[in-house]
Nucleic acid binder design. Structure first.
Lengths: 136, 136
DNA sequence: AGGCTTATTGCAACTAGTTGCAATAAGCCT
DNA sequence: AGGCTTATTGCAACTAGTTGCAATAAGCCT
């Protein structure tokens, strides 16, 4: 199902602004921030407002079309759901983001549930540290 | 070593503002946010500025006197280092914060290091989910 | 105790993000 | 195609947090 159809199904409308935001996310090879999306669009269409970008991201997230990762300190990045689920390893030195397979954290989910009765939601976790290159 | 001594040792000074911020953190039974610290102080001493609170927390964090936990979305809370290390389980429904023993995440640290060559810094992680009560 | 260096503060101006509201336009219905 | 409902937008005013700078005061040194 296309994004337009998903929107319409829920009573929402497809607009040029939303189309641009979606194409910025789909076009980005990795992760993209709200600010980056805005800048990309602003070059071509300066009348588009940053608040529209934030509101659209909020909506796309709710509809499950886009996932949000908290990179720490309230910095968020977005990526298309189609590109699959994974966690993020962020290097404190070089700033590069690596993808961490979901499976690695699965055992911990069970442990927390058993020991604490707490069902953790470990989707799109951001883990800081130092990458191979920077540890040399 | 007292906080005053730690400060002085590094060439910093103890001020009434810093004393109030430290006592707010030490006095709080659990975690406290910058905003909460400010409000506590503001009642007695309205001339104290919020920027002083932020700057002091930054400094105390650097000196290792206080630890900061990112509760997601850029909301931070602080607590005294003396009270020990642990992670946080935050319930999405009731908002309560539970402490998660460091040991639970230790095995994952090893796995990430072996598989990705990435040395993760899993201190004071915030994990969202649903607590025992709210899962009933 | 008083002078002096310089860390610290409060202030004001700034940033990124949020919210309420009137104007606009998506797209249904005829 | 044109009218109509109402979701969406841009704007302006707001929030929480940050930063530069001159005024202040901590605490060393005599």
């Amino acid at each position: 199902m296309s994004c337009t159809e998903t929107l319409r199904e829920q009573g929402y409308r497809m607009t040029p602004q939303r189309r641009m935001i979606l194409s910025a996310i789909h076009g980005s090879d990795h992760h993209i921030s709200a600010e980056e999306i805005y800048e990309q669009i602003h070059v071509k269409y300066p009348q588009v407002n940053i608040s529209t970008v934030y509101r659209t991201l909020e909506l796309l997230k709710e509809l499950g079309l886009v996932t949000e990762t908290d990179l720490g300190g309230g910095k968020f990045c977005y990526h298309s759901v189609e590109k699959g689920h994974h966690h993020h390893l962020i290097c404190r030195k070089c700033g590069r983001i690596f993808e961490l397979d979901e499976a690695v954290l699965k055992p911990v989910e069970g442990t927390i549930l058993r020991k604490y009765g707490f069902r953790p939601d470990l989707s799109h976790l951001a883990v800081f540290g130092n990458c191979v290159e920077c540890r040399k």
